[in-house]
Nucleic acid binder design. Sequence first.
DNA 1: CTTGCCTCTGACGTCAACGTCAGGTCTTAG
DNA 2: CTAAGACCTGACGTTGACGTCAGAGGCAAG
Lengths: 127, 127
Amino acid sequence: MTVTEAAGERLVRIGEVARGAGVSVRAVRYYEQQGLLVAERSPSGQRLYRQDAVPLVRFFQQMFAAGLTSRRIAELLPCWDSGHTDAEQRAMLRAERDRIQAKVDDLQAALDRLDEVIAITDTHPEP
Amino acid sequence: MTVTEAAGERLVRIGEVARGAGVSVRAVRYYEQQGLLVAERSPSGQRLYRQDAVPLVRFFQQMFAAGLTSRRIAELLPCWDSGHTDAEQRAMLRAERDRIQAKVDDLQAALDRLDEVIAITDTHPEP
DNA sequence: CTTGCCTCTGACGTCAACGTCAGGTCTTAG
DNA sequence: CTAAGACCTGACGTTGACGTCAGAGGCAAG
């Protein structure tokens, strides 16, 4: 609805989506269960996806890697779809952004500590 | 053994360690169970820690935040204690370092995508 | 028509780092 | 002495994103 929908868009089955995005079929079903993904159904009940489901799933993976939950992603999906947000969504966006930034800083600190140890043990003679 | 051990070092109980490091008592016990932390015992069986347990627990938290498991941390603890490593440990250190670096990059990419959306929705008129 | 692969719906299993509860002991301030 | 905390050992519960298995269809090729 929110995206241009050409008349005869090519629809793909779940396996193709999964392979294309590099996830499991189970994962794609899970995303639907969590309200992240909608699919039409063939007369026999098989899920049919538009091709933009592939980059969408990749995007989910990226957000998962950033520590967002599927619930949070579902709450923020309208921001991507419609391009506008209410105050609550903007607050959530900023909160997630700050959380990720803090995580990056933490990881960088951990990285520095590891590098420190690596430098020490590398310049050290073997026991 | 590996660290200078003054004669009458002040020993603290588990609650103080937990508060000092900002974790739960349960967490400290868990670290012991996972072989990350050793404690003497009072005659009545209560755990007694040296004060350097506090920064050590903080360090564990940092490594957990970086995605290392308690098992991995336990395997790498000798690197910190002794200051030297075998080939396998050096490989593990590098592997973890690379993994964390990759994670930082992923998070940065996710951050950029969020910032992009934030910029768009902020310059957008309210619906 | 059958073979082989894909897909379906449940529903239980996994893993890690704890949380939480039960029932008992210890320590310390008053 | 006593009551309030702090601590002890099990042991089961939680959370999130799936894995995995069972049993039952669906679909194109030969």
